[in-house]
Nucleic acid binder design. Structure first.
Lengths: 220, 220, 220, 220
DNA sequence: AATGAATGAGAATTCATTCAT
DNA sequence: TATGAATGAATTCTCATTCAT
């Protein structure tokens, strides 16, 4: 009974294992399209199954690709998740920019609604956001970073609107707003738990109430 | 010429005649203690790792038991989760009973705080609740049932307090409150995302604001 | 404070999205060879131990493969059995074609012998046939299909030889012949029960007697 | 991390392990009834699922007993199977006695029919016979012994009827007859494979033909 | 560069059998 | 004695990741 066959070449120190490499940024348009498709597929699968249950094989298949291709661009599942998070961070940045530009023209309630619908809009485009935020299995640095970055942008927008607001208060508010955004996604997008549209209205109402109350007296 | 001794019957995981059996009620005190330990361990592991990533082996080990014992009482991971959910449902029932008894003596803000801290208190006792509610992998009937039951109890309490409230409105409010409860757990108990205590205060404030506003004019 | 590294996603056997996929057709020559070896090994192990007692691990090992490879091509034990059955169905088809071609040149006794040795010849090539036909654990559709297909071919051959035979009679005869084929395998190939060669002669004799008697008067 | 707890007392040489003990022959009527029920349940389960797939737990449950009781009377699955086989051997003995008594009054065809229906009648009473004969997993001595004993009885009856028959021929015939008995069970009792009643008629016909042909000239 | 194949390290689940009360 | 509980060794199946052509 021969002992197990020796492990396949154990990745010599020289040959840096693949997974530490960051996501590949393809140069040619065909490559960029492929990456886009892979990320869409990944978002879909992760939304449907959750991060843990999503398999690289299904993601590749959903994108009409082979796992090999998937691994060419995203050397590990973690990196793929990170890339998605980065994408969401960028989307949030852009949306905040847009809000900031119109900020002085917005009524408080409008601002509140824009906030609360933030993630829903992102979800509309690529829906793995909440699934990734929930995933306990590996709170990668990237995911914490995302949270941080999002909060900072929200704080920034809040302070732009109400400069007299203490920064610390703004930060705590941002945390609450972020959770409301997640809740709104759960209530309007997730099909699993049956929720009447009325509850989304309630959430919107609560969010308006809260923001109006907090901004009152601090607004420019 | 097969020389090995005949193998025992393959414990074919495929033909699982067992999985659908409900959780076994232990008969003897040693069994009751074991079940209690198993549920504590399960709650711990599921909280820490999430439902998908929690393994039956770790749960058993943490309870000082062998998987065989775990499976004796809980014939599948699903059933184990369902048993936990049932436990939480019972806890909620009891807590609602308590609130209902004191209801007329409570200020609106006190009521709001009791609501928002609901899950935190449960978490304190057994912390897998939010992890289970998040688990996408299998929205088992039991889990939906739990949601439904919890919502019904909240509606009941709300209507007790404000009988003039339309039932449908109460239901939508309950959904929002439930999400606030989950958020509060995330903000105060989960150690993964660093959150200042201030944000919990903000959430409490928002919740008070909301409840007060909705109950105003409807209260007994 | 969980310190262990986050575990890989539990390869939950419960959520098997794979099992129902048909056997994979290998693309490369190395894959084809592997599949061939796996089927040989499977037939051997199933013959020796019976379907239930045969384990995927032993099959893989006997083929010099890892279970992972086995499952790549045959996503479940059922599918593996089905693939073997399909193989046997093809062999039977081919053998019937051959008999049909020579049919008019055959004496009735020769035909009877060809029939009764049918399964023995198949067994010689790949010996899981009777073990699979016996397996009670899961009368998969494929296995019933096999039976049906084999019976149809036998009926066809019988009617070719004796066109005046009522189809229903031919069908009933085919069932008897099929059982004789199985018996012949048991008597000549299985090493478990000690049987003298004389009993095979007796079976052959009975089969001749039967066929001659039934065909008499109906032959072309 | 303490190593695994020491195995529970490893059955000292003094305390002869249970499984070598033969089946308990209960003295009191209540015990005899319990054993009878257990054997009926065992036969049912084994017939339905096959020997390998039958579990001691299901057998006990089907008999309205606990596994502990089952093991009290049958110290292992093997012993249980052996007890069933012994039962079948006794039934066959009795049936042969009966045939022998009427032998001179029987037409050859009647004798043939009695033979071919042998196992069906037994099956009617307790149906695990063919399942046990098929079970490859452990060709225990008892099972071979059964075969031997049955064959001997058949030979005996054949020689009683046709004393001039060479003993060796009678033995080979008995093997064929035994297989026909099994086939008849498969065709008339097993519900899995759909078989028309006509095929049973064919089998009966073949069996008559064969026996008549073989006995001709040798009969008393 | 694309991709079919390999694989190792689990993970869920089962069950014959033995104990202890 | 009856029976609830314990257990350990198997067994099926999964999947992230790496190779070789």
């Amino acid at each position: 009974m021969p002992s197990r066959p020796a492990k396949r070449r154990p990745a010599t120190a020289a040959s840096r294992p693949n997974r530490d490499r960051p996501a590949l940024r393809p140069q040619r348009s065909v490559g960029r399209e492929r990456v886009a498709n892979l990320m869409i597929a990944a978002a879909d699968v992760i939304r449907e199954r959750g991060f843990d249950a999503a398999t690289m094989a299904e993601i590749a298949e959903r994108a009409g690709a082979k796992v090999g291709s998937l691994y060419r661009f995203f050397p590990s599942k973690e990196v793929l998740a990170d890339a998605l998070m980065q994408r969401y961070a960028d989307l949030i940045d852009a949306a905040c920019d847009e809000i900031d530009a119109r900020l002085s023209a917005l009524a408080a309630d409008e601002l509140a609604d824009l906030f609360v619908n933030f993630f829903v809009k992102i979800h509309h485009e690529s829906g793995a956001l909440t699934a990734l935020l929930e995933a306990r299995s590996h709170w990668s640095a990237k995911r914490l970073e995302f949270r941080e970055q999002a909060l900072k942008r929200f704080v920034n927008t809040l302070l732009l609107r109400a400069p007299a607001l203490p920064r610390k208060t703004a930060r705590d508010m941002a945390v609450v707003l972020l959770n409301n955004m997640k809740t709104m996604v759960a209530m309007t997008v997730d099909k699993s738990a049956p929720t009447s549209p009325g509850s989304a209205d309630e959430l919107r109402f609560m969010n308006r109430l809260y923001l109006a109350s907090k901004l009152a007296g601090f607004e420019r």
